[in-house]
């Protein structure tokens, strides 16, 4: 028994005694973590911000139709571009030339005349959707691969570790850059198919290059958990490998998984925006990065057009990151600053 383990145990004992919220009455460690999370002001505020943004994204169709704005060019109810645009392509109502109007709070896009708020809401929806799907898939792949590699060990572990290194060494941007034109040319005749294919390709790229970190983390955790006596006890009890993986090991990995998930959502939001800005990501559906890309050209005359999506991405990523940090502190008090 090493001294650090003894000290940790002692600390654990003292903490168990000192914690009034779990005074000897069977409270699961995860519930205590949630309780800690709820009493953390940073977590509450950032959680509220995330919740509002998620709701706005989810309810984008409802909000836009209530407001009477539209995110697509040539929508039958939308005003025709010629009605709302001046000769130089800038909108005739709202910024940058005219004063603020509640009809289009963020103004209209130059050249297309599409409402910026509507684009923003739908973009938020796309960004969050892509990030969430990518996170779920990377988590499944990463946790699965990590569990098996760590527990089975031996040759399997060596092969998996090599594959992880291989994927880590492959340049992510290059892969994405190479993939985008292939997808575009393949589906160029079919706009709906193109939009879907781009989403799928984007998620695939994010997942393909996003699972290794978590897999490595989980593998390491399993390697140390595997030698813990409760896992040995489970083997002696004759429990199946599946049971040991899912019922004995997985519950002890919830904290690192939750932390990884909460930090990977903002990373994927940023990655999606970045890729779309570079023109590798989505073009068929509105997205934050794509809007930023288009707004850069007219920044000098029409700064609001750029600031709105940039600030939205910033607020979203910041709130998600702060929430992720708070989650990590709550689930893993030892790493608290």
């Amino acid at each position: 028994m090493s001294t650090t383990a003894d000290l940790e145990r002692l600390a654990e004992d003292l903490a168990a005694e000192a914690r009034p919220d779990r005074a000897g009455t069977g409270v699961s460690p995860h519930r205590t973590a949630l309780r800690r999370l709820r009493s953390d002001p940073v977590a509450v505020v950032s959680g509220a911000v995330v919740l509002v943004l998620v709701l706005l994204g989810l309810l984008a169709p409802l909000v836009t139709s209530l407001w009477g704005i539209h995110a697509t060019v040539g929508h039958p109810d939308a005003p025709r571009p010629s009605e709302v645009l001046l000769f130089d392509g800038y909108p005739a109502v709202g910024p940058p030339y005219e004063p603020f109007t509640w009809q289009h709070p963020l103004g209209l896009a130059p050249r297309t005349g599409v409402d910026n708020l509507a684009t923003l809401l739908y973009g938020l929806r796309t960004s969050l959707g892509v990030a969430v799907v990518a996170t779920v898939l990377t988590t499944l792949v990463g946790v699965g691969v990590g569990l098996v590699a760590g527990f089975v060990g031996g040759r399997t572990d060596r092969v998996v570790s090599f594959v992880i290194d291989l994927f880590l060494s492959f340049p992510f941007l290059l892969g994405a850059l190479a993939l985008a034109p292939i997808v575009v040319s393949r589906f160029s005749t079919d706009p709906d198919g193109l939009a879907l294919a781009q989403v799928v390709a984007l998620v695939a790229v994010l997942v393909t290059f996003g699972w290794m970190g978590l897999a490595r983390l989980i593998r390491g955790q399993v390697l140390s958990l595997r030698e813990r006596e409760f896992v040995q006890a489970a083997v002696v009890m004759g429990l199946s490998t599946r049971h040991i993986l899912l019922k004995e090991l997985l519950p002890n990995l919830v904290a690192p998984i939750v932390v990884a998930v909460s930090l990977s959502v903002p990373a994927f939001v940023a990655a999606e925006a970045g890729l779309s800005y570079l023109g590798i990501g989505l073009t068929g559906v509105p997205s934050l990065g794509q809007t930023i890309n288009q707004a850069v050209d007219s920044f000098e005359r029409y700064p609001l057009y750029l600031w709105a999506p940039v600030l939205t991405v910033m607020v979203l990523v910041l709130a998600l990151n702060l929430l992720g940090d708070a989650v990590r502190d709550a689930f893993d008090p030892r790493t608290r600053r």
Partner: peptide, 15 residues
């Protein structure tokens, strides 16, 4: 064949 381990802190799953 069952086993009782040395470390009662490690032999029970904390979760």
């Amino acid at each position: 064949i069952q086993m009782v381990f040395q470390d009662p802190y490690g032999s029970l799953n904390p979760r």
